[in-house]
């Protein structure tokens, strides 16, 4: 620890339109730093799904991206309602999102599975009524 580059973002939970801006910013920064396109894409998708989740379910939160030479760590933390059954939420197709969110193209129950699909490690800590913290690691091959 200590030699990483760290980027912090506050995710606005009241604005679905701006959701994803932090992920676009991370993508730009990783490109400038010269990471391989596949790594950049996996980090961007995982973070973007997380960002959308925070806006849909938790009225926003905080995102930190820690960049090491050999891995990128994404930490997403919110103070939303928490996830009741994490195993169930990790199943493709399971969603608690309302129809209004589905009409916007999300809430198909693919968010968390996609985050797992594109990362080497994913840890979900959640307490009902307190919030959720998701830590993801993408290795740089």
């Amino acid at each position: 620890m200590g030699d990483e580059l760290r980027f912090h973002f506050n995710i606005d939970g009241d604005n679905f339109t701006s959701a994803g801006e932090a992920s676009v910013e991370v993508k730009k920064k990783l490109r400038q730093l010269g990471f391989p396109p596949d790594v950049i894409r996996r980090v961007s998708i995982a973070m973007y799904e997380g960002e959308i989740n925070m806006v849909i379910h938790a009225r926003g939160g905080d995102a930190d991206v820690l960049v090491y030479p050999d891995r990128i760590v994404i930490i997403l933390e919110d103070h939303g309602p928490g996830i009741e059954d994490i195993d169930l939420a990790m199943q493709e197709g399971y969603s608690t999102a309302p129809d209004s969110v589905r009409a916007l193209g999300f809430g198909a129950g693919m968010g968390l599975p996609n985050m797992k699909r594109y990362t080497e490690e994913m840890h979900v800590e959640s307490t009902l009524g307190v919030g959720t913290k998701i830590t993801m690691v993408v290795n740089v091959q």
Partner: peptide
């Protein structure tokens, strides 16, 4: 190809290049 119109369509495309 999509029939959905909101900025997230463009951001999604950006994420997957």
């Amino acid at each position: 190809l999509t029939g959905l119109v909101n900025p997230q369509v463009v951001r999604t495309a950006m994420m997957v290049d």
